[in-house]
Design a protein around this nucleic acid. Structure first.
Lengths: 113, 113
DNA sequence: CACCGTATATCAGATAACGAGGTAGCCCGA
DNA sequence: TCGGGCTACCTCGTTATCTGATATACGGTG
């Protein structure tokens, strides 16, 4: 599918996307980016410059717990696991997204088709 | 009444919102903000600091044509009208929003499963 | 005259994405 | 054994644009 999204529209969604993919299990950074790309149908390809700072920020906020683990093929990986705090944050962000999405649907949706 | 959205999520949506409300007719700035607030169900209340620069930018890009008109009660108003270029831009932004929205729906699913 | 609602405009500050650059481990082929 | 490619992490400067504060000015009301 064509049309990769980047730029301003993505602002504020990285946190929600990261927490969402981590709800299903422990993942490392590189893998998180791949999951987001897959789950969005290729629409989102988080850049490293936005993903890693976001992970550090979420860890500092207590939303994620991280640990280094060796890989049998390649450099070591930093695995992230969502915490209770993170689950609460996920719920908040999901709710905020729902409100935002609904507002946009009302404002621009249907009207143009 | 849902919470008002502000902050990062709004980045990049002002252009689409402005062009959308102007498709239905000529409006002045203050009125554009009110329409967006109404149509979004109160979720979006564009601040002056984001709306006016956006209008100037759209006018400079040829998406809008503007003219000063006196008001019988209050200060003069600057009316904005969407151009052919603006209609094309609206179509592009609406398409981008659709892709973005679909990607989010796929990635985060039906809110919280 | 003071105040409020209307109406436009601009500014400093904050946020967070992007691309580019760097480090490093492992595998494969020349 | 050297180089290139993939994996995997990290950081930096640049860019876009939203927020809240501040400013100007008109008209009606108390």
């Amino acid at each position: 599918m064509e049309g990769r999204i980047k730029g301003q529209l993505l602002k504020g969604t990285t946190t929600l996307l990261v927490l969402t993919v981590l709800r299903d299990g422990e993942l490392y950074g590189y893998e998180i980016a791949q999951r987001i790309r897959e789950r969005s149908g290729g629409a989102f390809v988080p850049s490293e410059g936005s993903l890693y700072p976001a992970l550090h920020s979420l860890e500092a906020a207590g939303a994620l717990e991280a640990s280094w683990q060796a890989s049998d093929r390649g450099p070591r990986r930093r695995y992230y696991k969502i915490t209770k705090t993170g689950l609460g944050m996920l719920k908040e962000h999901a709710q905020e997204w729902a409100t935002f999405s609904l507002g946009m649907a009302r404002a621009v949706g249907g009207a143009d088709q």
